[in-house]
Every structure is written in C-alpha cells, then in structure tokens.
C-alpha cells in the first residue's frame, strides 16, 4: 500500500469507514452493529495513522543517527481513541446482553415490535 501514490491510501480508508458506517446504520443485529461501529472507528484510526506517516520515516523511538521519524502525535491520539473505542464496545455489548435478557432477542425489528406492544 505504501507504494501507491498520492491520495489512494486515504480513499481506501474512506471505503473502509463507509463499510463500517453502513453496517452500523443498516444492520439489524445489535452485536453486528457494534462490530460495524468498531470497523468504522478502526478505519478512522487508520486515517489518523496514515496522515502521520512520513516517507522513509521510522518509528518515533529516538535512536542516534536516524534523521526522519514518523509523526508521533497521531499515534498518541489513536492510542487514546482505541481505548475509548474498546470501552464503548464493552459497554455496548453489555447493553446488548441486557437487551437480550429483557426482550429475548437482539434483532432490532423484533425489539421495535416488542416495544410497540407494551405488554
């Protein structure tokens, strides 16, 4: 991928993001939604990391004699964001389990039906 020129890398990231985004908004299964969300977020992370990349750079661990380092800041941000992402995922899964216990299903349309019928 590194060899591809220009903006191609970003475009790929966009495609990934959108696949994730689509899974989130279009799919009915709660677990699947959450993992779609995960993909969406990971794609965004890739986007950040890509922008930090510098040609012929190396990992930002300072060694003598290496002149070019990749930008460390996106890595830092993404480390934080990954943690936030896993936290969200864990919470979402916990909610999904509770929903499953309460409604007996994890399919969105069945839940909608159960909600409309308040019995």
């Amino acid at each position: 991928m590194m060899l591809l020129p220009g903006l191609f890398n970003y475009w790929l990231v966009v495609v990934l993001m959108m696949i994730g985004f689509y899974v989130v908004i279009a799919q009915g299964n709660l677990v699947k939604k959450l993992f779609g969300l995960n993909i969406f977020q990971v794609a965004v992370f890739v986007f950040y990391i890509s922008m930090g990349k510098i040609e012929d750079g190396t990992a930002p661990i300072l060694v003598d004699g290496e002149p070019v380092y990749t930008n460390p800041l996106p890595s830092v941000l993404i480390l934080t964001a990954i943690v936030v992402g896993i936290a969200t995922l864990a919470l979402g899964l916990a909610l999904a389990v509770r929903i499953r216990n309460a409604f007996g299903t994890m399919e969105e349309d069945e839940i909608d039906a159960a909600e409309a019928d308040p019995s």
Partner: peptide, 8 residues
C-alpha cells in the same frame, strides 16, 4: 434500547 441507540 434507548441507551443502546444513544450509544450507537
């Protein structure tokens, strides 16, 4: 479900 939707 409200919380889940809010989460998403």
């Amino acid at each position: 479900t409200a919380a889940f939707r809010y989460l998403i």
